[in-house]
Design a protein around this nucleic acid. Sequence first.
DNA 1: AAACTGTCTATTGTGGATAAAAGACAAAAT
DNA 2: ATTTTGTCTTTTATCCACAATAGACAGTTT
Lengths: 292, 292
Amino acid sequence: MAKQNTVFKDAFNRCLKLLAETSCLPSEPELGTTLGVSRTTIRAILTRMEELQLLAWDKRTKVVLRQPKPEDYYPPEETDSLSDIIERSFMRRILAGGAEPGMQINELELARDIGTGTTSVREFLIRFSRFGLIEKRPNSHWILKGFTREFALELTEVREMFELRSAASFAALAPDHPAWSELDRIEALHHEILADIDNRYKEFSELDERFHLLVHTSSSNRFIVDFYDIITIVFHYHYQWNKTNARERNARALEEHLDYIAALRSRDPARVEAACRRHLRSARETLLQSIQ
Amino acid sequence: MAKQNTVFKDAFNRCLKLLAETSCLPSEPELGTTLGVSRTTIRAILTRMEELQLLAWDKRTKVVLRQPKPEDYYPPEETDSLSDIIERSFMRRILAGGAEPGMQINELELARDIGTGTTSVREFLIRFSRFGLIEKRPNSHWILKGFTREFALELTEVREMFELRSAASFAALAPDHPAWSELDRIEALHHEILADIDNRYKEFSELDERFHLLVHTSSSNRFIVDFYDIITIVFHYHYQWNKTNARERNARALEEHLDYIAALRSRDPARVEAACRRHLRSARETLLQSIQ
DNA sequence: AAACTGTCTATTGTGGATAAAAGACAAAAT
DNA sequence: ATTTTGTCTTTTATCCACAATAGACAGTTT
């Protein structure tokens, strides 16, 4: 088992959806661009579709024979990339399980646990180490530094510096910059969710990420944008874990966002700074409260 | 060849220096602590020393038989860890060689070039990617983003934010904090080097790193401290490459440091900020000048 | 009793092998 | 004259094996 063909399976599933909507599929390069995979994978998909009698394929003609049935799809657990599986598994261990700071992390044990080779686990840990939650002792184990109060404070300190800077440059963006229309769309979504908050408050998490990423991107600084990955992953797993008062917290954050958006539109630096600080302060409080 | 025994060879060389200074070596655990390796490696070293008739070893007695000769040492090229070799080789390629932004990086080719396995190259690239100079296309190659003017500007922008913050917290450190005495030592070295600048200006690079790292460390923020790694590696390889006016540049930077140090001692926030900004501005100029 | 040594086991670092996926290039079709 | 397809080569992702290194434990020495 050198490599799982998850790219193929995932692209196949997505291609089934395309197939459900037309009577014949486009050219191989076009499909490749649409699905974001190479022609090699596209041809494997087409071959499989032919086998399943979904498609009559001969050179350029790709005629749909029947609608896809549920059993044509690959099960979702087979389409996850190995690194996603490792990430989820690892985060569950360190966030949910009793993971005390200072604990040792054992590559081999992790690999056995997840049912994978050590190389992939190692590469994951190396990539993950930039989040500041683990640290390597060369020729020896990794150390879990833990999701502690200090971690949260250090994280938010940098976040605040970066976001204040980014918000200031956002307000200075040219009026025809595409970010403004993305901001319009984001604002509209805020209103939509607020109007039906009881049912839709769970959509906040994703919208929050989209909004803050937009702000950070306007800094045009790769280090600032990259740092937002850390925020994203921390909040992502955190939301799954801590759900007390989610509705109230999210409603409040949405209001703060609207305020923040209005400040950005005003292009008044002092107002932007005030709104940004206000929101970041309450975001920090939320994070800290959930830690102990 | 599963693993090069560079840890052993390097520790052996360092142990030879210890051996040259005493008539008998201490216990295995003590040696392990001193050299920073495990007892397994210590015992390998002692065995080798016995073979070379350097030592009479029987349980606790480890009597030195003769002084080490130059040929007892392992050659320095055999004591470098593989990741150091890969790093140097890679940096030479992207800084010296005609490395245009957008160029593809090929793991296999790099590995063949360096004469190593692909796994090690891959792990190096993953670790290196946090420096923002390369980017991965999943299932495909890496892209060199290049050591460009934009890179330098983005890097220094973050550096300035972080260092201003760190300098402010340094000035607020308790008077008995160990950082103050380290600052004294660093200041003394500045005076020493300035007094003999024509001969010793090359020592600046290392002292510069030591000084700024001390400042950054006082932020007590792992993200700020970790970020300094990027600065370090960029300046490290940069100094090796660009040597025009090194003497003048270094002398000027040393003077700025002294000013900056005096400001820190004054604990006057306004003065600290001014001195820090002044120095960072000239550091940025130096870096930018060397780029094109 | 505390520290040290002998011995043994477990884990890490690294090269090599292999299926999956990307991608190059010429021939074929519009 | 593009765009598409058929075919082939190259590269990446991943597992596995094994030497180097770390680390555990019991017996031994001071």
